[in-house]
């Protein structure tokens, strides 16, 4: 079943036109990676889906229902959960309070203790304020906060950005567990290796438009695409 369908989606920040007639499908239990250079429109795509972009046009359907004009909180309550690029844990709430808040706001949440079992590093930090966590701990908390809401569609925006390699490995393990639980995932990522490891299908976007989509296996063999749109093999990442 198609969980998410985007057709002719355009998005704007003020007078800046960011997405141009974007089209995309995410099927049940898919792990889709959205790839592209900085500024290609990856984050804006997720913001268009969650309703947090200032203006969007076109057709965005979630489980067959149009959500293009639906309020942010209503999209969230239907099960679409975002782990944002900047983590955005609540700085004046403790780790436990961040997770409890998300739990209480969800329609059909996962057990809080079960969620902490997925994140042993957070279990020891329950009483710490969000603002006192390291970048890696904040990223774990941001993911935990989304998972405790038992997402039907999990959106991950650049989950590895700014993390040390050892933390990226931990995150890969946690997200591997999540994917194994049949959660549908749409992820933006500049770390191509991480994205291809975790993903099953991929979309490449450039200057706000689709340029390619297919399986991760196909993409691995397309050095031309990796080089042209993702700078892989040119020394850049």
């Amino acid at each position: 079943m198609t969980v998410l369908e985007l057709r002719d989606v355009n998005a704007y920040y003020g007078n800046s036109h960011i997405l141009f007639d974007l089209a995309m499908d995410v099927e049940e239990n898919d792990v889709v990676t959205l790839l592209g250079r900085n500024g290609a429109g990856k984050t804006t795509t997720l913001r268009a889906i969650t309703g947090t972009v200032p203006r969007r046009e076109g057709h965005i359907a979630y489980r067959g229902e149009e959500i293009t004009d639906t309020a942010v909180e209503r999209i969230s309550r239907r099960g679409v959960k975002l782990v944002p690029e900047e983590r955005r844990v609540f700085p004046t709430l403790t780790v436990l309070e961040n997770v409890q808040l998300a739990h209480e706001l969800a329609a059909d949440p996962r057990d809080v203790e079960e969620t902490f079992e997925l994140f042993p590093v957070l279990d020891d930090l329950r009483g710490n304020l969000g603002r006192n966590l390291s970048g890696g701990e904040q990223q774990m908390l941001s993911v935990a906060r989304a998972l405790v809401q038992n997402p039907d569609l999990l959106l991950l925006d650049e989950p590895t950005e700014g993390l040390a390699p050892v933390i990226v490995d931990d995150l890969r393990e946690v997200l591997g567990d999540v994917v194994a639980r049949d959660v549908t995932v749409l992820m933006t990522e500049q770390n191509v290796e991480f994205a291809l490891d975790l993903g099953e299908r991929a979309y490449i976007i450039d200057t706000g438009s689709n340029v390619w989509n297919g399986s991760v296996e196909e993409l691995r063999d397309r050095e031309d695409l990796l080089e042209e749109y993702l700078s892989v093999g040119t020394g850049e990442t």
Partner: peptide, 18 residues
Amino acid sequence: RIVRSTSSDREMARLLGV
């Protein structure tokens, strides 16, 4: 908790369902 979270980041609070 809802009040404190919204006062620090209203968009993130909405993304969680507030």
